[in-house]
Amino acid sequence: MKSSISSSSPLANPAVRGARRPSRFKFGYWLGVLPFFVFSALLLIAPTVILGYRSLEGPDGGLTLDNYRQLTSEAVLSAYGMSIRISLTSAVLGGLVGFLIAWAISIGGLPRPLRTITSTFSGVASNFAGVPLAAAYVFTLGRVGVVTALFELLGIDLYRSGFSLYSFTGLTLVYMYFQIPLMVLVILPAIDGLKREWREAAENLGATSTQYWRDVALPVLMPSILGTMILLFGNAFGAHATAYALTGGLFNLATLLIGQQISGDVLHNPGLGYAVAMGMVIIMALSILIYSVLQRRSERWLR
């Protein structure tokens, strides 16, 4: 790659540079990033594109939106509905709890080491998902779990009183185990971005602590909080491994439905399966998009 270097600042004037030098040099530039694009294209973009294409294909060929219209069929809708309910609940609750924990360890006056421990633990717990997490909850809140047994000692039969680990409530509780730490990790920098001077300026102008939080701190943090909750939503919405390990893949969840569709055409319509998958991609893309828009806004403020 000796071609691309001159010791003066080569980027100073790309227009002049491009005009003067032959295009071979530009190709040299692109060579450095080519593997990245090829790899991404083959392994991330192409599989998605083919699903998208197939989802638009009718049973007899030709492009159609029929498959997307069938997304409103009951089987699909109930799976999506459960996915959205679990994701929304675990995102909002996980977001709130995560925010409170982040607040407690950053400006809540707790000893400094607790912050380091908590943020490292959050790194661990946000990645502690899938089979081990499901197993841990089976041993905790499953029919023979330790906590279930403790409740029995207190005379409360959790499973008789309607609780099940393999339900909306149970799955939400399990998901929160990686949702809360993720919230902590993402929101901590935003809380750190609150300047001490803002609090002092507010106090100085006569504001109470409550007024400061209501009028300054929370509004400043709100884009980050909302954005991260949306990120959490996507995080739960696309989760497959944990639910699969917990329920054996038989729960009515969008990701599990796609899994079943891969193994055998449970929807009895391959095109619909592709549309279900693409629907997920669209919802995920929307949530990531909203997240990044909100994040950009908060960065502008917290600069």
Binding site: E197, E200, A201, A202, N204, V220
Partner: peptide, 28 residues
């Protein structure tokens, strides 16, 4: 401090980023 009625100006301005100029001035 919030009962002292002392106006303070900070080196970093410390303007509330979520408020307009007018809202900032009217905060107190």
């Amino acid at each position: 401090p919030n009962q002292r009625k002392m106006g303070m100006i900070f080196q970093s301005y410390a303007l509330f980023p979520n408020m307009t100029v007018a809202q900032n001035i009217g905060f107190g």
